[in-house]
Amino acid sequence: MNFDYMAIWENSDILLNGLSMTLLISAITIPIGVCIGVGICLMRISNNRILRWTAISYIEVIRNVPLLILIFMVFYALPFYGIRLAGLTTGIVCLSMYGGAYFAEIFRGGIQSVPNGQFEACKALGLKYSFYMRRVIFPQLLQYVFPPGTNIALTMIKESSLLSMITVAELTYAAHDINGRTFTPVETFAAIALLYWLISTLFLNLAERLNRKLGGDQIADSITIR
């Protein structure tokens, strides 16, 4: 069995460009997605009916439509209404909004998992909403949002491959490019898969470190099932 390493090696520059593009997209969209998620979540749980309804509609639309269709709508359909975005911009906007919808629901689940008594203790002490959400509730919900949150972030990293369909030169696009030149799908796609796997592992490592820094592991680590 011949594994044609040279095909990959000679085109490593294309690969590296694609890799850096994927990394860039992920590095931008995941934080923005988290911010959108926090905002939508607070709207979703607010007492204001308009805010609540806007949040629910946003989440429903994003969750029930395939990301690819969303991307196509923004890239191909929006220009008819005067909004023409470049491929990369489209990708970042769509991916961030996609992540935002899911993060919102994850944060909402996290807030609901914090025992009600915590909220009551905060209110009884006279603490302000913005203060206690930040200093008391948020640290406690980290342990609940970390597993599903990293799942969504990983999904976003992998879904960035869809952007290859609107001419963004990220990793999947590079794979098609190299394959088109060298006709070595086995080696090419194996290399791409390995690179995606490396990105994901690197991300999980960073996420775990961030989680530890924010104090999210204190409570979770003590939970064991006998």
Partner: peptide, 15 residues
């Protein structure tokens, strides 16, 4: 802020 309360479940902040 003028009324203090103690709960059955203590409700201390665990972190």
């Amino acid at each position: 802020s003028e009324v203090g309360m103690c709960f059955q479940q203590f409700n201390l902040f665990p972190h």
